[in-house]
Each structure stands twice: as C-alpha cells, then as structure tokens.
C-alpha cells in the first residue's frame, strides 16, 4: 500500500525568485511543498534553508515555519476565530509576539492582501469566498515569511478572484522581494508570473528551468498529462506553416509583439522575447 511520493528530488531556489510548481494531480507536488517547511520529513535526503539542514537535531522548525510560510489548498477552511483580525493574529501569537505587535503584523498583512479595514471586526465566515481566501493568506503573511509557498491559491475562484489573488502574490514578490513558490494547474498563470518552473511527474522532478525553456518541451509535458499555454501552441503552428516566430513566446503580450513585429521591420530587429 505504501508508495513512494517523491523520488530523488533535488533543486535549489535562490532568494527572491518566483517559482511555479506544476505537475499532474498525484505527481508529488503537495508532498514536495510540505517538506519545504518541515511538515513532512523525507525518508532520505534533506532540505536546507539558508544553508542550514532543517532536519538536523535541534533545528528550530517552529521558527522555520514563520520564515517559510505555507498556504494550503482552500486555506479558507482553516479560519476559526470570531473576527478576521483575531484570526490573522493567530500565527504571530503562536510565534510568541505581544498582542499589539501581533495586531500590527495582522493589519499589515491584511493591507497587503487588500482586505478592507472596515471588515477587520467582521466574522471570517460572513465574507465572500475570494475575501476569505485573502484573509487566510494574510494569516500566513502575518508571520513575516521570506518565502511564501502557495498550493493552488486560485482553485475554485472566479476569474476576478483569481486575478486579485495572483496580482497580490505578484506584488509581494516584486515589491516585498519575497521568494514565491506557486503550485498551479494553469500554464497561462505560471507563464505570466514565474521566473522558473519546477515540473513534477510520477514523483520525480523532470524540469527546472525558465517557463519559456520548459514550454518548448510541450510534447513531453503532454505525455505527463500537462500542457503548454495556448500561445506556445500557436507559435509551433506558425513555425510549421513556415513563419519563423520565436518558438518561446508564451503570453498574449509576447505573441502580440511578435506578430505585429512582422509588419513593422524596426520592431522585428530587436524583439525582446
């Protein structure tokens, strides 16, 4: 019955990177991220944070969890307090912070995810789904992590809720310099936001490269039950028709620039893709 959920996975994430983690359901993504903040312990091998072995005896795992924040799937299902602000304070309080300091952290976190201060005293069960999710993310942010790991933070949301969450994560990355690991099923989303992609298949790490590089292997991705963004396929189709666009274009903006470039020679010479 026991099976191996991860096999010989090795990779390094530099400070400040936005990493997308993709893979078919059951490929080991969720297991992998739970190792990164010490919730799960590997049978063999280890995880280093700031060059320190997090599974070494005496390592402060609780401290690690405040620096490597992990947001689970459907995080709104973990809300439990009477009001939003108290719920967000749960993390900082567990870190041993004083009440006013915890409040400060909570307010800051709620501001970062764009929750209206007028809602702070409302019950977390009375607000909309998208808002609940942002409150739950704030609950992790309030601990002040340097690394933020999110497991499909947009699952089940409508396009508006989806964009709000992704923009908020992107802002944390670009403005706060936070390292982000985003588990996602949407190739379009990771193409748009990620600097690097980790691709998992059958418990193994298959690719770790820039999204553009990874997407050029779209045939292999399909074999893993994944796909590339529509734009990547468009590029391949165009090239097959003899039109040599950049095969590595993957977002709408890039495709637009590339295609329009054909009609303006100047742009064609220094396309930035």
């Amino acid at each position: 019955m026991e099976s191996c959920a991860l096999k010989d996975v090795s990779f390094e994430v530099e400070d400040g990177l936005f990493v997308g983690l993709i893979g078919h359901t059951g490929s080991g993504k969720s297991t992998l991220i739970q190792h990164l903040n010490g919730l799960m312990k590997p049978t063999s091998g280890t995880v280093y944070f700031d060059e320190e072995d997090i599974f070494a005896p005496g390592y402060d795992l609780k401290g690690l969890r405040s620096r490597v924040g992990l947001v689970f799937q459907y995080p709104e299902y973990q809300l439990f307090e009477q009001d939003i602000i108290t719920d967000v304070k749960f993390g900082p309080k567990n870190m041993g912070l004083k009440d006013d300091e915890a409040s400060g952290r909570a307010e800051e976190a709620l501001r970062l995810v764009g929750v209206d201060p007028r809602l702070y005293k409302r019950s977390p069960f009375e607000i909309s789904g998208g808002q609940k999710r942002r409150v739950a993310i704030a609950g992790v942010l309030a601990m002040g992590p340097r690394v933020l790991i999110l497991d499909e933070p947009t699952a089940g949301l409508d396009p508006k809720g989806r964009d709000e969450i992704l923009d908020c994560i992107d802002a944390l990355h670009t403005e706060k310099g936070m390292t982000v690991i985003l588990v996602s099923h949407s190739m379009d989303d990771v193409a748009r936001y990620a600097d690097r992609l980790l691709v998992m298949d059958k418990s193994r790490l298959c690719y770790y490269d820039t999204p553009k590089e990874v997407f050029t292997h779209y045939k292999e991705l399909e074999r893993m039950g994944l796909s590339a963004p529509q734009i990547t396929y468009l590029a391949a189709d165009l090239r097959r028709a003899g039109i040599m666009v950049d095969e590595r274009m993957s977002t709408i903006e890039e495709a637009k620039a590339e295609i329009l470039g054909f009609f303006h020679d100047k742009d064609k010479d220094h396309n930035s893709i």
Binding site: Q34, N37, L39, K62, R65, S66, G69, L70, V71, F72, P75, Y77, Q78, F90, G91, N94, M95, G139, V140, M143
Partner: peptide
Amino acid sequence: KIMKAQTARG
C-alpha cells in the same frame, strides 16, 4: 489537512 495547515501557522 487542517492540522497541518494550523501547524504551518505555528
């Protein structure tokens, strides 16, 4: 799952 999520929050 909830237990793990709350553990992640300290």
